[in-house]
Nucleic acid binder design. Structure first.
Lengths: 335, 335
DNA sequence: CTGAAAGCGCTAACAC
DNA sequence: GTGTTAGCGCTTTCAG
């Protein structure tokens, strides 16, 4: 499908391609008369600038590549929408890559963006710290949701340790002692949440009750972890899941096993995704400021674009505990 | 961040850029000796082909743009993953665009891909038939999830009318007569699902009980629609929601209002997204063959790439009713 | 099997 | 204000 070129537009308007170029980019120093002629010619031809050629010549793409670790995670979708809003405000174009919930998928997506020579890359929920450091050698990179980083990688994330502490404090205040954790494996922020869980347990003198089941930020992972937890004796009276998806899987396994939440066991999630507000879920969870994260990610990236060597900056947002009805005091019989 | 170029690789390897080009593309007619030298030089320099330049010269991008109507809809995420799998199998690169759940957002995403001169575009859940027809003038386009189409637009979708009929037949068989529908506005396939609902109601002699509340394929839309339905007198004993997201919103509103599902009111969704299988949701819903849709979308697009003028083709997958526990006979008092 | 040369469509100085 | 002239980095005939 042959597309009209700038040259064709120039001929039709009876001007040079340079002038067309100026008009297309909205340059100020063009006579109204010719501007109109060019615009008319472009319109008649259905001309559409070839971004590839434009960028080859100008060495900028005006495009940011956003790699989403997992399209299925509603939290990432929410972050994506907030990044999009921030980018829209400053006229930056966004292209997305599918991390396929794997380090390999993420690396592939990054490589694609690098080959497309995007101006910068935002990694949402990156699972692999090494590859992002690698990517940062060839482009501006900012990571959302993970605090580990290298020299040149800016980050925007919620204070996961504090978030985890909020969750555990809440459960302890309700009277729980046997509080287990479904972790998030190598998911973004997972190690901080697990670390926060451990710290809080120790702080409350509950170090002996630390119990962690392996999850992976997915519903299936949460289900599997919950099944393990169900087998523990004595059974935990509360579970802090590393994210909402895990919490939802955990809730499913508990319900299937005939346990009532919160009567038999309390449950706390992380992310405050839309689903958790539904009345039949009503999950107590930790809210992340996705609007701030999205805005910060774009801000950091733009700043780095013209300050390549500046030291890495880190935005840290504040978590808030959202108490719903999945948490209650432990059952009386559980000493 | 200056990147190494093919020229630099050529110099370092002591060959011409043409030879480097051949090696990078894995051409067969290159001596092992030189191939090794080139590869080594490229590796030492950390050379990465510039896709922009490559595509400018070769007029192909080996890239497909996928526009997702809504990042929040898990059904679209599932379709995206299946498209990705199909594309991975044939070595095609995928870039995603965010339709922002709006016709404008969708149009913007399409325009971006057109400017990037991608080989083809797959629209997932497109809300606007006109703009996709427009896009088809400049690129190969296939639409997933919507049966309306134009001359040159291939489509891949589930038979939504049949799916709707499956849902209604199931409810009627259980004894329901006052069956309402939460529609999907201008969402992909929504009009077919609503049409199927109407047809089925008439077929069962229930034309007088047709009742449709406006939704938009989101949880919020489902909640609002359910609130309306709650006010109807007599109240419907069953609701067929146009998709799972709407059904989840509907379920929330019902639960909040103190109604039990399925005891007081039955509920059926559409899409069979992961969430619906959770035990505390356990939604009866209509499954769509996402693997077939993803594969078909890619197949159709590839085929069109070298058969521009061939008549449009349409893949239609079969829906299957998945019966869970959100449906039951109507309460006895409801005559 | 390898190199030279001519672009792909556009931007960016630099003249006029 | 507007045109000319070089490329941007790569592919692609076409010779040899």
């Amino acid at each position: 499908m042959a597309q009209p070129t700038m040259k064709m537009v120039a001929e039709r308007a009876g001007v040079s391609t340079a002038l067309v170029s100026l008009v297309m980019r909205g340059a100020p120093n063009v006579s109204d008369h010719r501007r109109a002629r060019v615009l008319a010619a472009a319109d008649e031809l259905g001309y559409r600038p070839n971004v590839l050629a434009r960028n080859l010549a100008s060495r900028r793409t005006n495009t940011i590549g956003v790699v989403l670790n997992d399209f299925h995670n509603p939290f990432f979708a929410e972050v994506a929408d907030n990044i999009q809003a921030a980018a829209d405000r400053i006229g930056y174009r966004l292209l997305y890559g599918n991390g396929k919930h794997s380090v390999d998928g993420e690396a592939e997506a990054v490589e694609t963006f690098l080959q497309f020579r995007v101006d910068g890359i935002i990694l949402v929920g990156s699972m692999d710290a090494a590859s992002m450091e690698q990517a940062a050698k060839s482009a501006a990179v900012v990571v959302v949701g993970r605090s580990e980083h290298g020299q040149r990688v800016d980050t925007a994330n919620t204070d996961d340790r504090v978030g985890a502490n909020l969750a555990i404090d809440h459960l302890v205040a309700l009277g729980h002692r046997r509080i287990a954790h479904v972790d998030g494996g190598d998911g973004a922020g997972a190690s901080d949440r697990a670390g926060g869980y451990r710290d809080a347990m120790h702080r409350h003198g509950l170090g002996g009750h630390i119990l962690i089941a392996a999850g992976d930020y997915t519903e299936e992972g949460g289900q599997a972890a919950a099944v393990q937890l169900l087998a523990a004796s004595p059974r935990p009276t509360a579970v802090f899941a590393s994210n909402d998806l895990s919490a939802i899987g955990t809730l499913d396994a508990f319900t299937t096993a005939g346990l009532r939440v919160p009567d038999d066991v309390s449950l706390v999630g992380f992310d405050n995704t839309a689903m958790t507000a539904m009345s039949y879920v009503s999950l107590t969870t930790v809210n992340q400021p996705t609007d701030e994260l999205g805005q910060a990610a774009v801000d950091l990236l733009i700043r780095r674009l013209d300050a390549e060597t500046a030291p890495a900056e880190h935005f840290v947002g504040s978590p808030i505990l959202v108490v719903r009805t999945s948490t209650a005091p432990p059952p009386a019989e559980a000493t």
